[in-house]
């Protein structure tokens, strides 16, 4: 396993597409878990950018939306395991909120493979690496998340300004 990794790096694969991954994490568990991955010198793809929140309970669904709009190809939300919340119950509230929100996004047509939720404790540096690597690789294979980016470029009435009906109306004036 370790050998394989070294080999992978020696022949560092260049990918045609490198996804942008945004991670919303709580400071007490997952941020600390990611720190542990660092102190243990584990290796994982450099695609992830971490935003630290006090608690998953603080993470507003709008932030996820915002991240996609800002060009994120994948979003990770991660906090303390149930029962371990530093703030007693923040993660329980977050669990419900995101259970509902992901259903909404799914219904709107967002591929849920781009949105990952996980519990990563302060002791789970390995799990952090696993979750981030898996999400990065999955999203990389899926290609860029174009839906929101295209929306941002779209104008409301664009393409319809020269419709035959409009032209006819214009000519009639």
């Amino acid at each position: 396993m370790a050998k394989e990794k070294v080999y992978m790096h020696a022949e560092k694969q260049k990918h045609s597409f490198e996804p942008k991954i945004i991670a919303f994490v709580c400071t007490w568990c997952t941020y600390a878990g990611a720190d542990l991955a660092g102190t243990s010198r584990m290796q994982y793809p450099a695609n992830v950018r971490v935003l630290k929140f006090p608690c998953t309970g603080r993470i507003d669904p709008v932030f996820i939306l915002k991240a996609f709009q800002q060009g994120a190809d994948g979003v990770l939300v991660s906090g303390c395991h149930p029962g371990d919340c530093h703030y007693i119950a923040g993660n329980y509230h977050a669990r419900r909120r995101f259970a509902a929100f992901r259903k909404l996004l799914e219904f709107i047509g967002v591929d849920l493979d781009r949105l990952q939720f996980s519990w990563v404790s302060a002791a789970e540096g390995g799990k952090w690496v696993e979750v981030v690597t898996e999400l990065t690789e999955r999203v990389r294979a899926m290609g860029p998340m174009n839906e929101f980016k295209e929306l941002a470029l779209d104008e409301q009435w664009s393409g319809k300004l020269d419709s035959p009906e409009l032209k006819e109306a214009y000519n009639a004036i």
Partner: peptide
């Protein structure tokens, strides 16, 4: 955090530097 979340977990100097700038 460009140590635990960057320099210690990535080997590629270019990638790590770009990530550090973004962080």
């Amino acid at each position: 955090n460009i140590r635990e979340h960057c320099s210690w977990v990535h080997e590629d100097r270019e990638e790590a530097t770009v990530k550090a700038i973004e962080i």
